[in-house]
């Protein structure tokens, strides 16, 4: 049956991590070096070595993920271990340093450890939160099916608009040309809707038309929105058939709007599920570089 990576094998790696941490904390508390706990004591070296080896192993996850033929455990098991043991690293690092910080490159390394772990935690949160949202938002349609439907709606809308009035046609066409999905990272993440307010305009148009039919055709008295009002005047005089087509057109565009919003949300969710990796992975490499430098410099100044 399905088992989440967090629940893998009865929380096996949570236990491994907890035991490792408890032992380290106990040792730290028991050990009372002079002048104070630091990276230079035997416990400091031991904890530092464990943390460094853990970091190397955690980074090997990226390799394992790409070794598709590997029989060394399942990727789910690896991810489970990656998460739980990764959480142990900042604690081990703090114990290793004896909680000493300063304005130096060693502390930069510590900061990088925290940054990597925090970005990873965001990833775990995203992995838990977004998959069900994607399913609900998709509503059993694939993204390409939704895009196809939009193309279809666009075509129908143009056809309808063409039957109503060339100006409406131009309006709909302009709005279609301005519909954009995806784009820059920012646009993906914010699910911004940049389609023009054609729907608003059309609704206004339809409403006016209705009102004007009810009243005597006295012409527009309102200022502003000259194009639309011109059309309203025109439509007020047009036969009923146009009003119906207009309402149909509004339905089509409303349906399209909701689809566009759904796709934008889909893109957004997908982007959030991936964006943190663009922080997590480069930071990890920075961490690795800082770690190498940290180890080298410590041995150099020994």
């Amino acid at each position: 049956m399905h088992e989440s990576f967090l629940a893998h094998r009865g929380l096996r790696y949570l236990w491994v991590s907890a035991i490792l941490l408890s032992l380290s904390i106990l040792a730290y508390l028991w050990h009372d070096p002079i002048p104070r706990p630091n990276g230079g004591t035997w416990l400091g070296y031991t904890l530092g070595t464990i943390a460094a080896l853990l970091i190397l192993w955690l980074m090997a996850f990226g390799l394992r993920k790409r070794l598709y033929r590997s029989t060394a455990g399942t990727l789910r098991g690896w991810l489970s271990a990656h998460v739980y043991l990764g959480l142990a690293v900042p604690v081990l690092s703090l114990l290793h340093s004896g909680f000493q910080v300063g304005w130096n490159l060693h502390t930069l390394l510590l900061a990088l450890v925290f940054a990597v772990v925090l970005s990873g935690l965001f990833g775990v949160w995203a992995y838990l939160r977004y998959p069900p949202l994607i399913t609900r938002n998709r509503d059993s349609a694939t993204r390409s099916a939704m895009l196809e439907e939009i193309a279809e709606l666009d075509r129908k809308a143009l056809e309808l608009a063409d039957r109503i009035d060339p100006k409406i046609h131009a309006l709909v066409l302009r709005s279609q040309q301005k519909t954009r999905l995806g784009g820059s990272v920012w646009h993906q993440l914010t699910a911004g809707d940049r389609s023009e307010g054609v729907l608003k305009a059309l609704n206004l148009l339809s409403e006016r038309q209705r009102q004007q039919r009810a009243q005597a055709p006295t012409g527009s008295t309102m200022s502003g929105g000259a194009t639309i009002l011109a059309m309203v005047d025109y439509l007020a005089a047009a036969p009923d058939r146009t009003g119906e087509a207009l309402r149909e057109l509004i339905d089509l565009i409303a349906r399209k709007r909701s689809l566009v919003a759904r796709i934008a949300r889909d893109v957004q969710f997908q982007a959030i599920l991936e964006i943190w990796l663009y922080l997590h992975v480069p930071l990890s490499f920075a961490l690795l570089a800082a770690l190498l430098w940290h180890v080298l410099s410590v041995f150099f100044y020994w």
Partner: peptide, 8 residues
């Protein structure tokens, strides 16, 4: 199945 990271 073996390469699904989340067990889905």
């Amino acid at each position: 199945v073996r390469s699904c990271p989340t067990g889905a």
